[in-house]
Simulated assay, not measured.
Amino acid sequence: MLRSAVRSAAAGFVLLFAAVLAADAGTGSGGVDAPPPPVRLVSAQKGLPLGGPTVIAHRGAAEYAPENTLAAVDEADRRDVEWVENDVQRTKDGKLVVIHDATLERTTDAEKVYPKRSPWRVGDFTAAEIAKLDAGSWFGKKFAGQRVPTLASYLDRLDDNDQSLLLEIKNPEKYPGIEKQVIGQLRASGWLDATHVMDGLVVQSFGVDAVREVHKLRPDVRTAVLGTPSRAELPEYARFADWINPPLKGLSSSYVSAVHSLWGPHAERLEVHTWGVSAGQAKRAFIAYGIDGVIL
């Protein structure tokens, strides 16, 4: 996979975020406009920051297309967003699919197709059964027929678009061994080569044990802990996690500084990528706290 040295953040919500960052940057002495804080570009080697916050499309471009579908991936690509975030769970017959909720009814027509199978838990359906569901019509008629993608098809689409992935293992406690299975699918899809591992992949979870297990299985893969671990826990987490990804609520400059003071398993400073934000909130968080990125 060939990656550009710099990928533009030029349209859609990335453009909005850049504009919000640039606006209201203040003025210097003598009334001269101060330069706005830079919007982060992305390194071809490691996907690391070059001066501003990384924008990661939450569940794909979920404001513009049905979340976690291939249409959302494509919409993020159309808007020149390199990084996308998704959620991975496991079906009854052991297949990995990309969906956020533990149940199917909110983002598919499962209630209509399988009316007697409440509460429509993802793990109670086979991959073939889930493949029959419409995962797009709830968002808009033009997305009718979108499916819940398998992780394999999702990875293929990202490769086609030359995009990077923040992969969340969702509800790992419900799916024993899913960490090994995710690593297996990443390997089968060609995502554990040097290019992907260095430039285009981070695996995250709220489940700290799951993050630790991914690091154990593949120490070369960058990982992230979702949530706000206590400051006392951070040194231990730095042994197996590269990013700490807390919600904006409760975030402080002193907490970000505590994270940034530590070095992760790949001999790089720990990063902070926050979520639960609007573009305006992200701008303020970047200026006030010095965060590394936003999941927007």
Rank of each mutant, 00 (worst) to 15 (best):
A267N: 15
N245T: 14
K46Q: 10
R79K: 12
A128G: 06
G26A: 03
W138E: 01
V88W: 01
M198C: 07
P235N: 06
P119A: 04
V81M: 13
A110W: 08
V88M: 01
T126C: 03
G12C: 00
I169Y: 08
P235G: 06
K132V: 12
V97H: 00
R187V: 09
T228A: 02
E233W: 11
G51Y: 10
R59H: 12
A152H: 02
I244S: 00
A23Q: 12
L167Q: 00
P38R: 07
G293D: 05
Y64A: 09
A188H: 14
S153P: 02
E271L: 11
V259T: 13
P149E: 00
F17P: 01
H215E: 01
L50H: 11
T27C: 09
G264F: 12
R222I: 07
A71W: 14
K216G: 04
L50G: 10
G184D: 14
V182G: 01
S118H: 13
G264V: 14
A258F: 08
L201W: 06
L262I: 13
K283E: 09
K95R: 14
S254V: 15
V277S: 11
Q45Y: 13
F13N: 07
W243N: 04
L96P: 04
A188K: 15
H273C: 09
I244T: 03
K92G: 03
T107Q: 10
R218H: 04
F143N: 01
K142L: 02
R59N: 10
R212E: 05
R40I: 05
E82V: 15
V259D: 02
R90W: 06
D199F: 08
L201M: 02
Q281Y: 10
D124I: 13
R231C: 04
R157P: 03
R90Y: 05
D199T: 15
I99D: 02
R187A: 14
S164D: 02
G280D: 04
P119E: 03
K116A: 09
V55L: 15
V39A: 07
P219K: 01
L15K: 03
V122R: 12
N68P: 10
L16R: 14
D74K: 14
R284C: 05
H260C: 09
A23M: 10
A110Q: 08
R117M: 04
E173S: 13
L96H: 08
P176I: 01
I56F: 11
V55Q: 14
F139P: 00
A238I: 09
G290R: 12
R231N: 05
K216Q: 12
G123D: 04
V221M: 01
P219V: 03
L104D: 07
S43L: 04
V294G: 08
A71I: 02
Q204F: 03
K142H: 03
F17V: 11
I287W: 09
Y255W: 10
D162E: 14
S29W: 12
G52Y: 08
H196D: 01
V225S: 05
Y114F: 15
A232C: 02
I130S: 06
V84L: 15
Y255G: 04
A279S: 14
I169N: 02
